[in-house]
């Protein structure tokens, strides 16, 4: 970890100004990923701007019937918020599928988006990695790539985004609110993270100095039919091999609206709108789900150690859609918590 200065920012505009005035500065929210990366010498900020005092930790209803998550709200406070539990249970499920209770107590919602990949090579300075050091090559290609991507990869990088929360945020059509040197703007969630292409060092489309201030969930929360299914190497506290966020609106057995996003398979939460369109108007049957799963994975590419993810993802999609369809429209408002039972 290199040496750095630290200030606690008092307001968003002050934080943004401070970032602009310090080369090598970084914002720090919960610190769960940044401090980790600093200890690995992957991140080497020279100045940290603490965000704790910005007050962006509230969760409140928006006039359009949606919900605004303050960027500094913790993952735990978000998952267990009554409005999230009752209206966006998919988000509750996704958050609780990630990390551990103590990490969720620290990690912020904005920070969750800013997580960097868990690719082994990105974390290990002894190996080349285009994301860490552009131009050095991708060690995961041809190497140990069990955790790596199968969709939207490039010859430069096959890393995945590790978040569970983001998979639900993608499925729910979230809008990301940011503040930067040029003022405020919003970014559609699907445009927030990028695919690696030739610039895997860029995880997202934030402009220099921009700070996430909030996440806006639209009114539609798919609270009646949803599933977050996460498959991993142990029952809990492991990153996803494949995860699926599925949300349906049903009219009888006919699908009226659908959302489908995958985690653990791409450089970003992989929302597939074409597949969603294929679901709409169809009966909610295993046949439909299988056809859609095949479509989602149509252009998937395996890299050896992770090729199994193609088949696993197909099966997971079918299962998640089935679970979303069959679930009873009752929500446990106490805490929407599905213990890591079999098959999830």
């Amino acid at each position: 970890m290199n040496s750095f200065t630290f200030t606690q920012a008092a307001a968003v505009d002050a934080a943004v100004r401070e970032k602009a005035s310090h080369e090598g500065a970084a914002y720090i929210g919960g610190g769960t990923n940044l401090v980790d990366l600093m200890k690995e010498n992957v991140a080497r900020p020279t100045h940290l701007i603490g965000l704790k005092k910005l007050g962006l930790d509230t969760i409140e209803n928006t006039p359009d019937g949606g919900l605004r998550l303050g960027a500094l709200a913790t993952n735990a406070d978000t998952a267990y918020h009554p409005e999230v539990i009752s209206r966006y249970p998919l988000l509750n499920q996704a958050i609780l599928a990630g990390a551990s209770p103590q990490l969720r107590n620290m990690a912020t919602d904005g920070g969750n988006l800013m997580q960097r990949t868990r690719c082994y090579y990105f974390y290990d300075l002894a190996t080349p990695c285009n994301k860490r050091e552009p131009g050095t090559g991708c060690s995961a290609i041809g190497g140990y790539n069990r955790v790596c991507g199968i969709l939207g990869t490039s010859d430069s990088c096959i890393a995945t985004h590790p978040s569970d929360m983001c998979v639900a945020l993608a499925a729910l059509d979230t809008t990301v609110r940011v503040s930067g040197p040029n003022g405020e703007r919003t970014i559609k969630f699907e445009d927030f993270h990028r695919l690696p292409g030739d610039h895997p060092e860029r995880d997202n489309t934030l402009e220099p100095g921009e700070l996430i201030t909030g996440l806006d969930l639209p009114a539609k929360g798919f609270a009646q039919h949803f599933s977050y299914l996460k498959l991993r190497d142990r029952t809990s506290y492991a990153f996803a091999l494949v995860s699926v966020a599925a949300a349906l609106e049903l009219d009888g057995n006919t699908i009226k609206d659908a959302r489908l996003a995958l985690g653990g398979v791409a450089h970003k939460a992989w929302r597939d709108k074409a597949a969603e369109a294929l679901l709409v108007g169809q009966p909610a049957t295993a046949d439909t789900f299988r056809r859609v799963a095949a479509k989602v994975l149509e252009n998937a590419k395996g890299y050896g150690e992770n090729t199994f993810k193609i088949e696993l993802a197909k099966r997971a999609i079918v299962r998640a859609l089935k679970q979303a369809t069959e679930m009873k429209a009752t929500v446990d408002t106490n805490a929407y918590f599905q213990p890591s039972a079999f098959n999830s």
Binding site: I28, G30, L48, G50, A76, S100, Q102
Partner: peptide, 26 residues
């Protein structure tokens, strides 16, 4: 020392966190 084991768990304002991933100054 990386938030991967929980041995460093302490309570901050009553909530349990990984003390290894928090800077003292924060």
């Amino acid at each position: 020392d990386h938030g991967q084991c929980g041995a460093c768990t302490v309570l901050v304002d009553g909530k349990h966190i990984n003390s290894c991933l928090s800077l003292a100054v924060m």
